[in-house]
Computed example of a mutant assay.
Amino acid sequence: MYYSLAADAVVVFHLLFIVFVMSGALLVLRWPALVWLHAPAVAWGMSVEFLHLYCPLTPLENSLRIKAGAAGYAGDFVGHYLIPLIYPAGLTPSIQIGLGVVVLTVNLIAYWRVIKRLWRRRRAA
């Protein structure tokens, strides 16, 4: 039971990390100090997408599921609703690159606004 809960926690953390990578720049607009957490997260997320790297959370989750005696995700909320968001069916290298471009675009726009705001503040001072 504990291994199953730990695997579910890994999936939730994985999803939250993905959401942070994709939209964390919006938080940086509000709290600029978050850039020190967000920029490395974006670098890792884009590396995984563009270079087709294997995220270490995936084998961790799988090993926890195996230790829990489970082979699949059927039967629980996390497995039914969150797993398809993180690991969609039919995910191809082209789709991964497209997702990476979306992440890059969203972050470039948000960071451009952060830099523009800081530049205006320095000119006004």
Rank of each mutant, 00 (worst) to 15 (best):
Y2M: 13
Y2D: 08
Y3F: 11
Y3L: 11
S4D: 14
A6Y: 12
A7H: 04
A7W: 07
D8F: 02
A9F: 13
V11F: 06
H14Q: 05
H14M: 13
H14Y: 03
L15Y: 09
F17M: 15
F17N: 11
I18D: 06
V19A: 12
F20V: 07
S23K: 02
G24H: 00
A25R: 01
A25D: 03
L27R: 00
V28P: 00
L29S: 06
R30A: 14
P32M: 11
L34D: 07
V35Y: 08
W36R: 08
L37K: 02
L37R: 01
H38T: 09
H38K: 05
A39C: 13
V42F: 06
V42D: 08
A43C: 14
W44S: 04
M46I: 15
M46D: 04
S47P: 01
V48K: 03
V48N: 03
F50R: 06
F50I: 08
L51W: 04
H52Q: 10
L53M: 10
C55D: 09
P56G: 05
P59Q: 09
S63Q: 13
L64V: 12
I66Q: 10
I66W: 07
I66H: 10
K67H: 03
A68F: 02
G69L: 13
G69H: 02
A70K: 14
A70W: 14
A71D: 13
G72L: 15
G72A: 10
Y73C: 05
A74V: 10
A74M: 15
G75W: 14
F77I: 09
V78W: 07
V78K: 04
G79P: 06
G79K: 11
L82C: 04
L82D: 03
I83N: 03
I83Q: 06
I83W: 08
I83Y: 07
L85I: 13
Y87D: 05
P88T: 00
A89L: 15
P93W: 03
P93G: 01
S94V: 11
I95K: 02
I95M: 13
G98Y: 02
V102P: 00
V103E: 10
V103M: 15
T105Y: 09
N107R: 04
N107V: 12
N107H: 08
W112K: 07
W112V: 09
R113V: 11
V114W: 04
V114R: 02
V114D: 04
I115E: 05
R117L: 14
R117M: 14
L118A: 11
W119H: 06
R120E: 10
R121V: 14
R121F: 05
R121N: 05
R123L: 15
A124K: 10
